[in-house]
Computed example of a mutant assay.
Amino acid sequence: MKSIKQLMDLTGRTALVTGGAGHIGMAFCETLAEAGASVAVLDIDPARTEECATRLTSQYGVKAMGLAIDLADTDAVIAAPAQVAGALGGLGILVNCAGFVGTSGLSGWVTPFEGQSVDTWRAALEVNLTAPFALIQAATPLLRASGHGSVVNIGSTYGVVGPDMSLYEGTAMGNPAAYAASKGGLTQLTRWLATTLAPDIRVNCISPGGVERGQPDPFVKRYVARTPLARMGTEEDMKGALLYLASDLSAYVTGQNLLVDGGWTAW
């Protein structure tokens, strides 16, 4: 029987993380590198992807590369797995962390439902749902060949439950339908792929709750008051879930959505 240390060891494995230069994405890259994996950091900003890859190599002594790709560019998305395999020697772990979250200034995004636009709806689904579909499809032969293929999709509590809009009163924040629908779709895609790609590839999902990142005080106070663990999440809170699902710690787990939300959805 393997030890816990052996089960969590990713030495010799290669991971691709989309949104890898973002807050949660970089925490995931660090987690995988610390466990011994080679890591490809995929994000839209060339300078940040290279900076993150360089930091992983210097801090953890693993091979790493940056991939500057716009997830709305389907051809580039489809080509990414082969690029990673060519540079880092295969692909066994795929983490779909990138997310279209928009901004308060984006037209047709943070606005009452009647004002939410079809264009922003399509943009959100393209990045949050279509890109993961295309990337997993392109990566499937490599994941299967690795002998330990693991896909981890990053959903959201709002792909599981409806929003409490009172949280946002008096702020510029909101909760667009497109974000919820795209994350709910990603969770269901996880289940569909888990049964169709088995037994060679495991497919699971992590759905974070709210992560504190400088939101307005009224929102934070309301959110904390509604959360059983009485705080918002941090990037560090997500690392254990990612390592569990990416490694052999979860070798008999597929098709699951792990809610890392401080109990938000347990009410």
Rank of each mutant, 00 (worst) to 15 (best):
D164C: 14
G240I: 09
W192R: 11
G184V: 05
D200G: 06
V39H: 04
G66R: 01
A266F: 14
G214R: 06
K2Q: 13
G90V: 09
D200N: 13
A138I: 01
A177C: 14
V224Y: 10
D73I: 00
G170K: 03
H23F: 14
P208S: 12
M8E: 08
A72K: 01
T18Y: 06
I78A: 00
V95K: 02
G263K: 09
E50V: 04
C205I: 00
T120F: 05
V220L: 11
A194Q: 12
E34A: 15
S38I: 06
S150I: 02
P199Y: 13
G159C: 01
T49W: 04
W121H: 13
G159W: 00
V110H: 05
G174P: 03
F100T: 03
A194C: 13
M1F: 03
Y252V: 03
N153C: 07
T234N: 10
D119C: 05
A198N: 07
M232Y: 06
A47C: 02
V101S: 10
D45L: 15
L71P: 00
A27Y: 07
D261F: 05
L91G: 05
G90W: 11
G86N: 08
L142S: 06
A131K: 11
T103A: 15
S58F: 11
G20D: 11
L106S: 03
D217V: 14
T227P: 09
P228V: 07
Q59D: 15
T171M: 03
E235D: 15
W192V: 08
A138D: 05
Q188H: 14
M232K: 03
D217Y: 04
G162Y: 02
T195L: 14
E50Y: 09
A123R: 15
T49E: 10
A181S: 11
G185I: 07
G92P: 08
L56Q: 09
